[in-house]
Simulated assay, not measured.
Amino acid sequence: MRVQHPGGRHGAPGRGAPSSRRGRMPVRGIRRLSGAFATAAVFGIVATLALAPLDGGPDEAVAESTGFRGDDVQSVEIAADAQHPTVSSESYTASTGPETLVLGGTNHDWAKLVLVEGEFPVTDENVAVITQWMREENGPDNWWNRNNPLNNGNGSGGGSGLGSYDTLQTGAYYAADSLRRLSFYDAIEAALDASAPAGTTAAAIWASPWATSHYGNGGHWTASHVPVVEAPASAWGR
C-alpha cells in the first residue's frame, strides 16, 4: 500500500540529504520484504489451524459429561419369576350395512342382507349357499319374483310359500326370521352360524322337514357359482 502525503505527491528527500543511497535499502525493497513477511505469516496461521485437533462437538461434550461412550454395552436382567403382561388378540370384522346392500341391488346383495338381518357371518361360503338356494327356488334371471326369493311363507300371506312381500328388504327380514325362529330350520341355522362349507349347509337344507321333495336329496341342486344379477329398483322400493 502506498502512503501519500496530503498534497497527493510522494515524499521527496530534503536539502542537504546525501545523494548516495549506499547503506540504505530502497523503499521499494522494504515494501517487497514486508509483503513477503505478511504472506508467510498468513500461511503460517492457516497451517496452524489445519494441524490443530478439531473439537469433538456437542455429542462428544455430552458423552464426556455423562461418562457414556458408543462402545459401552448395557444389559438388563429380568427376574425368572417376573410375570409377563397378557397381550389381547381380539379380532374385529367389518359389517356391511343394509343401506349399502339395498343400493347394490343384486341377488348377492340380497343373500348378504338375509345374513345381516339374521346376524349370521357374512362369508363367501354362506353367501354361496344362499344364492344357490335362491336359484333353486326362482331361477337366477327372476330371483326377485314376488319379492320372495326363497318362497318363504312366513309373513308373506301364502302358507305354501307363494305369498309376496312389498319389497325385497322385507323379504330378507322374514327369511332371516324363519331361519332364527322356526325349529325346522335349526340344522341350517347351525351351519350358517358356523360358516360351514356351502355343501354342508346345502345338505342341511335338503334334509329339512319343510322341504317335501328334499331337492332330490341334492340331485336337483346346482352347486356352481351363481352369476350376479341386479333386480329392478322398484323391487327394492326405490
Rank of each mutant, 00 (worst) to 15 (best):
residue 38 A to S: 06
residue 92 Y to V: 14
residue 212 T to P: 01
residue 83 Q to G: 03
residue 66 T to N: 00
residue 152 N to H: 06
residue 173 Y to H: 14
residue 40 A to W: 07
residue 97 G to I: 04
residue 163 G to Q: 11
residue 19 S to R: 15
residue 53 P to G: 15
residue 201 T to I: 10
residue 91 S to P: 12
residue 72 D to L: 02
residue 18 P to S: 02
residue 103 L to K: 00
residue 172 A to D: 05
residue 204 A to M: 07
residue 114 V to I: 08
residue 235 A to H: 09
residue 97 G to H: 05
residue 169 Q to R: 13
residue 176 A to C: 15
residue 188 I to P: 04
residue 37 F to Q: 09
residue 235 A to S: 15
residue 31 R to P: 03
residue 17 A to N: 10
residue 130 I to H: 02
residue 226 V to W: 08
residue 102 V to S: 04
residue 5 H to K: 13
residue 201 T to Q: 11
residue 52 A to I: 02
residue 138 N to R: 06
residue 24 R to A: 11
residue 151 N to C: 14
residue 86 T to Y: 12
residue 6 P to E: 04
residue 150 L to D: 02
residue 89 S to F: 07
residue 167 T to E: 10
residue 234 S to E: 15
residue 146 R to W: 02
residue 51 L to D: 10
residue 153 G to D: 08
residue 18 P to M: 00
residue 163 G to H: 12
residue 139 G to Q: 12
residue 211 A to F: 03
residue 153 G to V: 13
residue 170 T to P: 07
residue 144 W to D: 01
residue 220 H to E: 07
residue 196 A to K: 15
residue 98 P to H: 04
residue 237 G to F: 11
residue 119 E to F: 01
residue 130 I to F: 11
residue 196 A to T: 11
residue 143 W to K: 14
residue 99 E to R: 07
residue 117 E to C: 01
residue 74 Q to V: 15
residue 140 P to N: 14
residue 224 S to M: 01
residue 138 N to Q: 12
residue 220 H to V: 03
residue 87 V to C: 06
residue 189 E to N: 14
residue 233 A to W: 04
residue 210 W to N: 08
residue 142 N to S: 12
residue 103 L to C: 00
residue 14 G to C: 03
residue 185 Y to H: 15
residue 89 S to P: 05
residue 228 V to R: 15
residue 41 A to E: 03
residue 19 S to Q: 10
residue 4 Q to K: 06
residue 54 L to H: 04
residue 207 A to N: 08
residue 17 A to G: 05
residue 104 G to H: 06
residue 41 A to F: 00
residue 142 N to V: 14
residue 132 Q to I: 00
residue 121 P to D: 06
residue 196 A to I: 07
residue 23 G to F: 09
residue 103 L to D: 01
residue 212 T to Q: 08
residue 169 Q to K: 11
residue 161 G to W: 08
residue 126 N to Y: 00
residue 9 R to T: 13
residue 131 T to V: 03
residue 149 P to K: 06
residue 8 G to P: 14
residue 3 V to G: 05
residue 12 A to E: 14
residue 119 E to V: 01
residue 40 A to V: 13
residue 26 P to H: 10
residue 88 S to I: 11
residue 101 L to A: 08
residue 144 W to P: 03
residue 74 Q to N: 03
residue 208 S to T: 13
residue 53 P to E: 12
residue 138 N to E: 12
residue 214 H to I: 02
residue 52 A to C: 02
residue 23 G to N: 14
residue 56 G to N: 09
residue 238 R to H: 05
residue 45 I to A: 08
residue 48 T to I: 09
residue 172 A to P: 07
residue 176 A to T: 11
residue 221 W to P: 00
residue 98 P to A: 11
residue 35 G to S: 15
residue 90 E to Q: 11
residue 82 A to M: 06
residue 182 L to I: 04
residue 225 H to R: 05
residue 189 E to W: 12
residue 206 W to H: 01
residue 41 A to Y: 00
residue 70 G to R: 01
residue 158 G to R: 02
residue 21 R to I: 15
residue 201 T to Y: 09
residue 124 D to W: 04
residue 153 G to E: 13
residue 82 A to L: 08
residue 20 S to R: 13
residue 188 I to V: 12
